[in-house]
Amino acid sequence: MGLETKLPDGVVLTTLESAVNWCRKYSVWPLLFGLACCAIEMMTAGMSRFDIARFGAEVFRATPRQPDLMIVAGRVSNKMAPVVKRLYDHMPEPKWVIAMGACASSGGMFHNYAILQGVDKIIPVDVYIPGCPPRPEALFYALTQLQQKITTQKFKDFA
């Protein structure tokens, strides 16, 4: 990207790196994007009983230019797969993906020609959530796991 590729490790940028990661960790904005029944649980996660805002992830953005996180909530049909791929490609770096539910993780109970057998065939996935659909708390658990992953990330990974 720039300076961080030229400087040696652990000199100037480590403190900045942890500060930036801390900011990124508590402002993971998801993409306003749902495919099936898991999306209902994703919407529920935003309601006051569960309140995804406690993790700084309540800002569901309706354009792929602004969010950091794509929650693939639901089964990805072969017809939808190019759209999912295009939305992912439009998102700016750094970006993360959560495969929510059995269908997004591996195709679930749909062993057929119409459903993509796991969204990781087209885009890289960071966290998989089992469940059909998973509870909102299961999504929060995945979100905390993703936050842990973000704290360990390096600038060089994006360079």
């Binding site: 993780s105 591996s106 966290v127 089992p130 708390e137 658990y141 995945a142």
Partner: peptide, 12 residues
Amino acid sequence: EFALARASRGDL
């Protein structure tokens, strides 16, 4: 137990 999210398919 519902908190089953993992980072890889193999762990699941």
